[in-house]
């Protein structure tokens, strides 16, 4: 099992005391499998993803990722985990504004110490970024920026890709095309994919699908 989540609980401080966002979430994902995560806005999908990536800490519960106990790792351990085994595509603000597209794509792979320029070129080609390689993020449209983030994640060859509504900014058609591309590439690298999405069509294209509501998965 690549990812196991048991009884994960997380709450945020609200104006009238703590608000429980996750109340005992259980989840399992095998290597190379795809899983869609749906839920209402504000239901805690992003929160769950952040916890799995070790970007935030839960109050209770366990997360095991590729044999490592994420919930027991310290800051540096979480950083190493993200660097080596997890790729994340956020809803927005994914890129380093002062680096050009090519450098952004190469960036995580270089951090992880496994950069392959040909792979970058292939990914850029597949995602339609080749004409934009020398541009800076601010010169790209929102969709183009998201495609750069996807290319960056896949260039680093993670075992698990976490995508948080990667096409939330995009129109239906474009969004569909980008996601098709992404699914194909993930399949090709053999990574597992956990994607948050509102799109029924997209969720349907995934092997499994879970719905987050009232802090629990169903």
């Amino acid at each position: 099992m690549l990812l196991e989540v048991d009884g994960l609980t997380k709450s945020y401080a609200g104006p009238e005391g703590p608000v429980e966002v996750l109340r005992g979430v259980d989840l399992a994902l095998d290597a190379g499998r795809t899983l869609a995560l749906t839920g209402d806005s504000g239901s805690g999908k992003s929160t769950l993803l952040h916890l799995i990536a070790g970007l935030d800490t839960a109050e209770a519960g366990r997360i095991r990722l590729d044999g490592a106990e994420v919930t027991a790792l310290d800051d540096a351990g979480c950083a190493a985990l993200r660097r080596g085994r997890v790729g994340i595509v956020f809803q927005q603000f994914n890129l380093i504004p002062s680096l050009d597209v090519a450098a952004n794509i190469a960036f995580q792979a270089r951090l992880a110490g496994r950069h392959e320029p040909e792979r970058d070129a292939r990914l850029a080609g597949a995602l339609g970024l080749t004409p934009h390689l020398a541009k800076y993020p601010e010169q790209l449209s929102g969709g183009q920026q998201q495609r750069v983030a996807i290319a960056r994640t896949l260039a680093a060859r993670p075992k698990l890709v976490l995508a948080d509504e990667p096409t939330g900014n995009l129109d239906e058609t474009t969004s569909g095309a980008v996601l098709e591309e992404m699914l194909a590439l993930v399949a090709e690298t053999g990574a597992a994919l956990l994607m948050v999405t509102h799109s029924e069509a997209l969720a349907a294209r995934m092997e499994r699908r879970l719905h987050l509501s009232r802090g629990r998965l169903a």
């Binding site: 970007l55 540096a76 950083a79 190493a80 660097r83 603000f93 504004p97 002062s98 951090l111």
Partner: peptide, 15 residues
């Protein structure tokens, strides 16, 4: 700050 956040989410330890 955004850059710092991105670097850290991509696995650069804080230290």
């Amino acid at each position: 700050r955004p850059m710092v956040r991105t670097l850290r989410t991509l696995g650069l330890p804080l230290g």
